[in-house]
Design a protein around this nucleic acid. Structure first.
Length: 311
DNA sequence: AAACCATTCAACCGCAAAACA
DNA sequence: TTGTTTTGCGGTTGAATGGTT
């Protein structure tokens, strides 16, 4: 007997999510907070398994997600971090705010891998992830371990900072892993959800645009049908008034600044160590020839750690 | 215009770790 | 301590789309 499926396959819908489903999910998370995914399908009536709901939220609907158009800046970071951490996309994503691990993974597989192949003259005698598995050095494993420890420390530090600060900041902090914060998607309180919801609306606004074009009648029906549905659509459409054809980092931040400038200030504060890491990444990318390990990595991390200690 | 091929990316699957009872 | 449930992660797939012949 094989492993049982993660959820009943009978009556479970698969494939692309519809805007209607997105609205239901976003609305539910706004009310209940992210977490307890097991309960989401039954509580929302969505014919999706819990995994699918979580994935849709974390990779697409979650607020603050920046999609497509990777900058050269981000590209270099990914290449560098991949070199250090391997295919640990979640860890890499923690260094790139507003990017999901899935997005980074896709970008790596579709763009960067080829790019590096070309740069190395097609000489890829390494494994699929660019590492030679048989010759991976002990030092590299140590560095990985050190990085993990460092990340854990920072996560703890941030958690302690949050405890001290306004509890309302928690959802925002949990949503934006400004620096190596492990995803903290455990049950997020519904409080302060207006900020997160606004960004969620931005994320699905583009879908809604097409959707309303296709079925303007349906949108109208939603507005005028049940009170709850009407509320959902009214909320969505109210956000639709702003221009977010391209949900860039800047636009997300500025939109949130308008809603809650304090949160942005806090975010900037916690970004200090991240900027240092970035500096290291780019300094090193420029200084070091391809494939060379940065010797001063741990030094700089230690320096960053000192900065974190200031909290 | 149609067929074919390549690319992209959202979503699924299976496993492992974490959380819980 | 152990067994079960839930969550998170990385690899993979396949539909959609765009480009080429």
């Amino acid at each position: 007997m094989g492993r049982p499926p993660c959820c009943d396959t009978v009556g479970v819908k698969k494939g692309p999510w519809t805007p209607e489903e997105d609205i239901i999910l976003v609305s539910y998370i706004q009310e209940q907070g992210a977490g307890n995914w097991r309960a989401v399908p039954s509580n929302t009536g969505l014919l999706r398994c819990s995994k699918s709901c979580r994935l849709r939220w974390t990779n697409y609907l979650r607020p603050g997600i920046k999609r497509g158009n990777f900058t050269e800046h981000e590209e270099k970071m990914i290449i560098h971090l991949q070199e250090l951490l391997g295919n640990r996309w979640a860890a890499i994503a923690s260094y790139l705010p507003h990017r999901t691990d899935n997005d980074i993974k896709n970008y790596w597989n579709t763009h960067l891998k080829k790019k590096l192949n070309k740069m190395k003259g097609g000489d890829m005698s390494t494994t699929h992830d660019g590492h030679n598995s048989s010759t991976i050095s002990k030092g590299q494993w140590e560095k990985r371990l050190q990085t993990d420890i460092h990340m854990a420390k920072q996560a703890l530090c941030e958690a302690l900072c949050i405890d001290k600060s306004d509890p309302k900041m928690l959802p925002h902090s949990a949503t934006y892993p400004v620096i190596s914060t492990p995803p903290t998607t455990k049950t997020v309180p519904a409080a302060n959800s207006s900020t997160t919801y606004a960004s969620s609306a931005e994320n699905i606004a583009r879908l809604l645009e097409n959707w309303t074009k296709k079925s303007s009648n349906l949108a109208h029906n939603l507005l005028s049908s049940s009170p709850s549905e009407g509320t959902i659509c009214t909320r969505m459409l109210s956000f639709n008034s702003s221009n977010y054809s391209d949900v860039s980092h800047e636009s997300v931040i500025s939109a949130e600044e308008q809603l809650d400038p304090q949160t942005h200030d806090d975010q900037q504060e916690t970004q200090i160590p991240f900027s240092m890491l970035e500096k290291w990444l780019f300094d090193d990318a420029i200084a070091a020839p391809q494939g060379q390990e940065p010797d001063h990595f741990m030094e700089d991390l230690a320096l960053a750690e000192t900065t974190v200690d200031l909290f």
